[in-house]
Design a binder for these strands. Structure first.
Length: 879
RNA sequence: GGGCGCAUAGCUCAGUUGGUUCAGAGCAUCUGCCUUACAAGCAGAGGGUCGGCGGUUCGAAUCCGUCUGCGCCCACCA
């Protein structure tokens, strides 16, 4: 790129990504190095990139790039998840747009459409990750529903079935009437919802099905289900209701007779103490029904409409029916009152439909032993969580895990490998052929046509829990005779997993279970939980709110490097991220700063004969120290997954120390050349800085690193080693900080007095001021420094323990200056008094560690010398 | 209802087993500068009783108790 131009990320990003791809720099094969492995949290195959992906994958990419530069064999496996419910609902919606209903086509036809959709949209998100700079090993791209991985899922099902851990049972499940499938407990979100408490009169039957004038009152939120009532239940200890024993009551509107029963489940002080029992449409009522042998009458169909068993309002949606039946009840005189009521209602995570409890036959996987093992993995520390507070959450869930409902009434996914015989018996085998053989052992006369495969598919998480294994060797899970291949042996367990905390149970916990089950050990060493990306106002980013920017627009506008920085700047571990575009602007500004500093350095001409100036020589020594010190800090941050701290540390090193101090010190006057030694050192520092920043800003660093020197064919910053922390002089760093502070004071003085930055001034310092730093002051503050005291008018200030005096003959008001010094003197005396009081405290001296007391003594000495210095200055002013 | 966590500058957050002048950073704000790398910039400045109260200690932003205000997870009182 032209040196004089402004930085233009568009010219840079595509060029280098193409170069990296072309040379297969991201590809990894097992070798003798230590592996560093990450498997991507697979995004939904039909998804598009959102800010959560940006955060997550930026963090992943920073870690993988850092490891690569640290000399490890870095492998980041990308891929996508078939996401059965999400994808199926998109395909259904698309077909609807084409005038096709899912009900009218066969499973095979539907799947054809679904695969077409996948082929069309499935690669999009992976392409988008490339724009972000993700250095995935694209040759290893996987899809949870590709044939080999699907086969692994099927074998896994068979494995657990044979182990006796998978069973089919009729259970009350969470039914999603929009997606028309059962969903797991974890996919139900309970939200407090405004509704009403309807108090209904149920009249006592006279025994012949006619109402008497006696009645009881029940309170319900779901009046539309009364037609499915099987009983009225009261607490046996509730004396208020003893008169109801043995009575029967009539369901309003339809006058069906139901008994009054007693069960401890009923809370006496909630509602009216009478509960209507509706076994088909409430989990608890179902349990009560089992205990009391009540009939189960289902009146709501799969789509949430009343069916003919309801007798009235047949075909109406449950919410419409609720409204209508309230009117009917009122008319019939059964409605006593309506109260406002807020109660938790379950919503489907995917469709946001209100979940309908529904009885159905589903497949379950027993969790007890799996959860126990997976808890042990984390408790023993073999898998660490960052931040640590997720241990508690995890433990609680593992100790209370309920069996996992793994069947889904969908078509998009791995079909359950269970075949039913005509007599209802079931065989579970990896494929139809094996199923037939198994069936023929039961009944030799059976043919393939007699077998019927289960219609359901498996929960998506039942395939993604194998991810860290199956991406390397899909033959392995559920295949006891198979030796793990070289990849699996080398890359498993993976190193770090970066993911959002909301899938800790869906995915993280279950990967640990599958890892322990099949590999006998944990799937990853560390799990880093990111926060959730929110907007400035703290709202979760969502499509419906429209508060989520399109990451690709941001990348186009500001550049991928800037977007990555913007994301990381506010991403301290475990906290939610409050995204604001100004952070991305800050990232872009940093790119510009780096670019401009490069322009400065490359624009210099070099004079081999010129000697190195004192200021430059000092600057080189100092920056070398500062660099070493900072590298150590950055390494420490990385080791604790404090990525944003690592970034901020480097940011300040580059901007404040390198640009504002170092380059200003070594910068030759306009038009003059720089000496060779300083030039080489400056380029060397630049190289180190680029390598230090590369994991967070891959593109601009590659561009500049390539331009910084003649690089060999195929050389890249991707594999350039991370700068190592060397020895450094903490003293020099401290001394420089003093000089920098002094220079700042002098600049402020100039501004205050209206003295041009170029006008030379005389500065007098006392002997305690580090002499090595004189050139810094001379260059940066435009002063001539000498040791000693000056007589006459001037301005004085204290830096560290040194007294500095700037001669300003004729330009200071002696009275004003005296007043300032006196104020300073007073402050120092107060401070001294404080320190002395502390030292006079016997308990302090007795209890505090020696080092702490020594510090106090030093403070005392320093304060004394400062006071002395100020008094001297006051004397000079004639006070 | 149970559990976990948070509260520090206008905003977002550091503050690593209580102790260096420890009250910090970045952004934002204000002032002065278009100074031949950079106005997407430079040089400065202001700004906080560390949520309230109480306790432990020679010493508390840091430990304990309590109150207030938030957030998250789990949870089927119809």
């Amino acid at each position: 790129m032209e040196l004089n131009a402004k930085y233009d990320h568009r010219e840079v990003e595509d060029k280098w990504y193409a170069y990296w791809l072309e040379n297969k720099f991201f590809h990894s094969e097992p070798d003798s190095r230590e592996p560093y492995t990450i498997v991507i949290p697979p995004p939904n195959v039909t998804g598009i990139l959102h800010m959560g992906h940006v955060l997550n994958n930026t963090l992943n990419d920073v870690l993988i790039r850092k490891a690569r530069m640290d000399g490890r064999n870095a492998c980041w496996v990308p891929g996508t998840d078939h996401a059965s419910i999400a994808t199926e609902s998109k395909v259904v919606a698309k077909l609807k747009g084409m005038g096709i209903s899912k009900d009218d086509i066969t499973r095979e036809e539907f799947l054809k459409y679904a695969w077409e959709w996948k082929e069309e949209h499935g690669g999009i998100i992976l392409q988008q990750l490339r724009k972000l700079g993700c250095s995935c090993d694209w040759d290893r791209t996987r899809f949870t529903m590709e044939p080999a991985l699907s086969a692994a899922v099927i074998r896994t099902f068979v494995h657990f079935y044979r182990k006796g851990w998978i069973y089919k049972g009729v259970r009350m499940v969470n039914w999603d009437p929009v997606a028309l499938t059962a969903v797991s407990d974890d996919e139900v979100i309970h939200k407090d919802t405004q509704s009403h408490f309807y108090h209904l009169k149920y009249f006592i039957s006279d025994g012949a099905g006619n109402p008497t004038d006696q009645y009881l009152v029940i309170a319900t939120t779901r009046p539309e289900t009364i037609m499915a009532d099987a009983a009225i239940c009261v607490n046996p200890a509730d004396e208020r209701h003893h008169w109801l024993r043995g009575k029967k009551v009539l369901i309003p509107l339809i006058n069906r007779e139901i008994p009054v029963i007693e069960d401890d489940y009923v809370e006496m002080d909630f509602g009216t103490g009478c509960l209507k029992v509706t076994p088909a449409h409430d989990v608890h009522d179902y349990e009560i029904g089992l205990r009391h042998n009540l009939p189960v009458l289902e009146i709501i169909d799969d789509r949430g409409r009343l069916n003919e068993k309801a007798q009235i309002l047949v075909g109406e949606d449950r919410f419409v029916a609720r409204k209508k039946i309230v009117g009917m009840l009122e008319e019939a005189g059964n409605l006593l009152k309506i109260e406002d009521y807020t109660s938790p209602v379950g919503y489907s995570e995917r469709t946001d439909a209100v979940i309908e409890p529904k009885l159905s036959a589903q497949w379950f996987l027993k969790m007890d032993l799996l959860a126990k093992t997976a808890l042990e993995t984390v408790e023993s520390g073999r898998t660490r969580f960052i931040p640590e507070r997720y241990y508690n959450t995890y433990r609680h869930w593992m100790e209370n895990a309920r069996d996992w409902c793994i069947s889904r009434q969908l078509w998009w996914g791995q079909r359950i490998p269970a075949w039913y015989l005509p007599d209802g018996q079931v065989v579970v085998e990896p494929d139809a052929e094996a199923a037939l053989k198994a069936a023929q052992k039961i009944n030799p006369a059976l043919t393939a046509a007699d077998l019927r495969q289960d219609e359901d598919v498996l929960d998506t998480w039942f395939s993604s829990w194998l991810w860290p294994i199956s991406v390397f060797d899909p033959e392995f899970p559920g295949n006891p005779d198979h030796e793990p291949n070289a990849d699996l042996k080398y890359y498993y367990p993976t190193s770090d997993l970066v993911t959002a905390p909301d899938i800790i149970f869906f995915w993280v916990a279950r990967m640990i279970m599958a890892g322990e089950e099949f590999m006998g050990r944990e799937p990853f060493s560390n799990v880093y939980f990111t926060g959730i990306v929110r907007d400035k106002l703290g709202r979760k980013m969502s499509k419906t709110l429209g508060n989520s920017p399109d990451p690709l627009d941001l990348i186009a506008k500001y550049g991928a490097d800037a977007v990555r920085i913007g994301m990381l700047l506010c991403a301290s571990a475990g906290n939610d991220i409050f995204y604001d575009e100004s952070q991305v602007e800050q990232g872009r500004n940093f790119c510009a700063k780096i670019w401009n500093s490069f322009r400065l350095v490359r624009g210099w001409t070099v004079d081999d004969a010129a000697p190195q100036g004192e200021a430059a020589a000092l600057a080189v020594r100092w920056f070398s120290d500062k660099l070493s010190q900072t590298v150590a800090t950055v390494e420490d941050h990385y080791s604790k997954f404090r990525i944003s701290d690592a970034l901020m540390t480097v940011y300040r090193l580059f901007w404040d120390d390198y640009c504002s101090w170092y380059l200003e010190l070594v910068k030759p006057a306009y038009g003059t050349p720089v000496d060779r030694r300083t030039y080489e050192a400056t380029l060397g520092f630049f190289d180190s800085l680029l390598r230090l920043i590369h994991p967070v800003m891959p593109f601009i660093t590659e561009e500049l690193w390539q331009a910084l020197a003649d690089r060999r064919e195929g050389e890249t910053i991707l594999f350039a080693p991370t700068p190592k922390a060397g020895e450094y002089s903490a003293q020099r760093i401290a001394d420089f900080a003093l000089a920098a502070e002094a220079a700042g004071n002098i600049r402020a003085l100039r501004q205050e007095k209206g003295i041009s930055p170029k006008e030379p001034l005389d500065l007098y310092v006392d002997a305690s001021f580090p002499q090595e730093m004189f050139p810094v002051l001379e260059k940066l503050a435009g002063v001539h420094v000498s040791v000693g005291e000056a007589a006459g008018a001037g301005a004085s200030f204290v830096v560290g323990t040194s007294k500095l005096f700037v001669a300003l003959e004729g330009r200071v008001d002696a009275a004003e200056e005296t007043a300032k010094l006196q104020a300073d003197l007073e402050y120092q005396r107060k401070f001294l008094a404080g320190v002395r009081a502390k030292l006079a405290n016997e308990k302090f001296v007795a209890h505090a560690p020696e080092a702490v007391v020594a510090v106090e003594r030093k403070k005392e000495a320093d304060a004394l010398s400062r006071i002395e210095a100020i008094e001297t200055a006051l004397k000079a002013l004639g006070a």
